[in-house]
Design a protein around this nucleic acid. Structure first.
Lengths: 191, 191
DNA sequence: GTCTATACGATGATAGAC
DNA sequence: GTCTATCATCGTATAGAC
């Protein structure tokens, strides 16, 4: 076992805390209270608050990158791959809010050299997303487009989900997915 | 004159500071340094740090709401109105980064009762955005859709702009606008 | 590993002289 | 209105007993 049970509990609570309050507003005192330890005891398991953020950031990145890899390895058409990738984002946003929040926002609070390292990973993810879009264009499945702009628009467009979905306004993940995919593929206009 | 020149300087610097560092990471000491005053002197002009946030939040909201009102009052078609509204968001993101950041994110740090009040204003804005989309559907200009989902997707989809655009990768606001509007109206698919 | 006690800096904010 | 001086509080983190 790589991490002790206590360390795992600390990491889990820290994830939730960072996601709910944001990294800056989350204190080690809050964390200790949740875990049921004194603050000082946390430091028997973890070197610093930022070390927690580091671990959580790179774990979140792995969730996205593994999903990406799985999709890349299928031999579906480019547009089908993009469809799956968007579905992946929706799935993460609704079932693993922490990963979504950290990968979208909280990584910014990393300090060097981890910040730099994380940026490289994130840029790699974006590049691979962009490549899929470009392949769709090349295959004649997508309209001509500025790939970077579309990529960032899609990538960002789902960031409301993790705040909105938990209140569940009587809609299933599946129909949410259907509706969002329809919009991103077909656009607003009636064709 | 409603606010003294010094108070205006304080508000302007606070806006920039909150936008650059985020409300939590911005300190009154930083602010004082920028304004060229001692920290304590700030308190001759403003009651507290959060009072600054309050003023800035409701000012940002006004930027969006006034834009919304102007567009609502034209007698353009629903789809043209939506087009203008999206263009408004792009314009604010590229020329008034503070308003965008505050209206998107930093308002969350308000405390009650201002938080509640702000939420109501924001919800009003979303509702009016949604109404325009619905009118487009009713007029047969837009495809059938879940208006709420489309609204939130569009609304959120532009949030990368204010971080990305300043680095200007050799693209004008106008062609940025053209590309984004094409994507949101026509979708990914080649028709 | 967990505890009590504590160090030490940064924070938002105030008192009172000028 | 601005200053110097100061406060109380909270932040992360450490020392050392058990």
């Amino acid at each position: 076992m790589a991490v002790s049970p206590t360390k795992k509990r600390i990491l889990d609570e820290a994830s939730k805390l960072f996601q709910e309050n944001g990294y800056l507003a989350a204190s080690m005192r809050d964390l200790a209270k949740r875990v049921g330890l004194q603050v000082s005891s946390l430091y028997s398991h973890v070197g610093s608050k930022e070390e927690l953020l580091q671990k959580i950031c790179f774990d979140s990145a792995r969730v996205y990158l593994e999903g990406m890899k799985t999709i890349e390895e299928t031999d579906a058409s480019p547009s089908e791959k993009v469809r799956q990738l968007i579905a992946l984002h929706i799935q993460i946003a609704t079932t693993d809010v922490t990963s979504m929040t950290i990968f979208s926002d909280e990584w910014r609070h990393l300090s060097e050299p981890y910040l730099q390292e994380f940026r490289i990973i994130r840029r790699d993810y974006e590049r691979r997303f962009g490549r899929m879009l470009q392949q769709g264009v090349d295959a004649g499945e997508f309209a001509e487009m500025n790939v970077t702009i579309c990529l960032l628009t899609i990538f960002t467009s789902l960031r409301w989900l993790h705040r909105w979905y938990p209140e569940k306004r009587g809609i299933s993940v599946k129909s949410l997915e259907t509706e969002i995919l329809r919009f991103l593929f077909e656009g607003l206009k009636k064709h």
